[in-house]
């Protein structure tokens, strides 16, 4: 696998840290982090990551709003987005897919499995 750059947008620092460590260790990919939707959009615009992992439930700007915003900018609309959701929200999976996200990964996950999951969803 070639080196990829992943952006994770999640307001929980612990999740950011653990995901970053797990992906870096398993696949050697770079992981950028952002703690809110608005910061995530900025990072996505400037850094142009290969994919974005986006938490659905965040205060202020939630994952859905963030996704819609990302879609509205020409610099970010091509970047594939994978939503991170809790099991309880998995029922809404169809609704998420209808939005146009590339995929959904259910929490809790093992960060070591993430590169495989991402690669499978995005057909890398």
């Amino acid at each position: 696998m070639t080196t990829r750059r992943i952006l994770i947008i999640d307001d929980e620092e612990t999740i950011q840290t653990v995901v970053q460590f797990g992906i870096k260790m398993t696949a050697g990919w770079d992981v950028l982090t952002a703690s809110s939707g608005s910061k995530g959009i900025q990072t996505a615009q400037t850094e142009q990551p290969d994919a974005i992992l986006l938490d659905v439930m965040m205060p202020e700007m939630d994952g859905i709003a963030t996704f819609k915003a990302l879609q509205s900018y020409p610099e970010t609309e091509q970047i594939p987005v994978i939503l991170l959701t809790a099991k309880a929200q998995a029922a809404e999976k169809r609704q998420f897919n209808d939005l146009g996200v590339s995929g959904v990964i259910t929490k809790p996950f093992n960060s070591l499995d993430l590169p495989d999951q991402i690669a499978r969803i995005l057909h890398w």
């Binding site: 929980e12 612990t14 809790p108 996950f109």
Partner: peptide, 14 residues
């Protein structure tokens, strides 16, 4: 929100 975040974190640690 607190309960949701807590659940997410705890799940991460198994």
């Amino acid at each position: 929100q607190v309960a949701h975040k807590l659940a997410g974190n705890l799940g991460m640690f198994g």
